[in-house]
Design a binder for these strands. Structure first.
Lengths: 131, 131, 131, 131
DNA sequence: GTGGTCTAGACCACA
DNA sequence: GTGGTCTAGACCACA
């Protein structure tokens, strides 16, 4: 019943509601196999403290994940990643970047950026910050 | 006093409020020089029809741009890009992609994507969709 | 057909519409006998130039004054103060300060000002700026 | 976290927009220390009922106060007077009467009132209506 | 024609 | 309970 340590990062100022950010981030970690069937999510309280967020917000996110079948509520133990979840293939996961990439493309257009310069800048940034 | 045709694109499903999306998009077009000092924004009503959005939502965005000094209200004529605004340099504009790039990096980590594959996928996508 | 020179002072930033300000100010000058029956108001164009205001705004104010019987439109000559207007007594004119005095009182309360200090400050200011 | 009872008084017939009236009145009460850092403003809905005004109008005023740093939005709790606000000195508060006093002076001139009579009338009125 | 204000009422995120 | 966003529609000042 170990609790995985999650790489969760919230941006409270974003328009995106916090509970939605949590849901999406946890789904990504399931898709990538960083969270596997049988793993446990951190407890509502623990995560609330860690992320400096109201426990109800965490609870709401967990509730959604449960109602969509991604996790199951184990009485007295916490929230467990459902058995049915499956790690997704690399190309499926790359697809998940599409909405963000589309926004990026829109912003490049609005900033009237040159294609080569934009690609170069991004490549450099990703190369530096991804391991 | 011609009204620029803007490349504005709303995502109503996004958590980001519509008026905020408008503000950010117009600011980008000012930064890139697609909107210059003295140009007029489309009228509230015209843009409302075009984007299928309530006029007050447009008005709210214009109000913010005015209160931040980006545009000035010309009585009876509409909203004009302020004289004081300045086109930004390419590197300044690339900097504006940082928040989005950071989110992208975070998602890559959560999806446990390989650096080379992620860069390759993005490069291909941008190369295809930017002119 | 001489045109009186008016002491008109507009505050365009005020919420009070400009044409209303004009109407009220001209009425006050009629009440005080600074404008008498038979006097002419400045022409719309002249006043528009002087006050840096759109001629239509002046015209609208004159139209109201006419429809309320304070002035009459003299074909080809301009707007003349109506014969029927009457100079008001001092106490009637003091009464006209009431709305402003009420606002002043409200602001004193909200600013939690001491009665004596407020009266003293006002007295000093009026004594200095009135002749 | 008690909600102060405010002495707010609207004049709907005034040209001054309601939300502007609210902003100015609340600012005065902050300047005078009737509203202190940490106090809560009445809730949007409560004030809307009390003043018989649409909640959005109140919300608009609160939004401006927030964007100018006078109040901070406390999620789920309401709007709190910002910690940074400071009570102003008596002479600073007297200064805030200047615009109104200037209008008063202008009206006295236009009504061609005698200085002594105007001062006397005002003094009597303030003496009667301020405590 | 332009933008601004206000209402009545729906729906949402968060505590 | 708190504030925020959005709509549909009325009415106003100004050019």
């Amino acid at each position: 019943m170990q609790h995985s340590s999650l790489i969760l990062q919230l941006s409270p100022s974003s328009g995106e509601p916090i509970y939605r950010q949590l849901i999406e981030q946890i789904k990504r970690m399931i898709a990538s196999g960083q969270l596997n069937a049988g793993d446990y999510l951190p407890s509502v309280r623990q995560l609330a403290v860690e992320l400096e967020v109201n426990p109800m917000t965490i609870s709401k996110a967990y509730g959604f994940l449960e109602s969509h079948g991604d996790v199951v509520r184990m009485r007295g133990k916490g929230m467990m990643i459902a058995e049915m979840v499956h790690k997704e293939s690399i190309s499926q996961r790359l697809q998940k970047l599409t909405p963000l990439a589309d926004t990026l493309i829109q912003q490049c257009k609005q900033l009237d950026l040159d294609k080569q310069q934009a690609i170069e800048w991004l490549t450099k940034k990703l190369d530096k910050e991804l391991k």
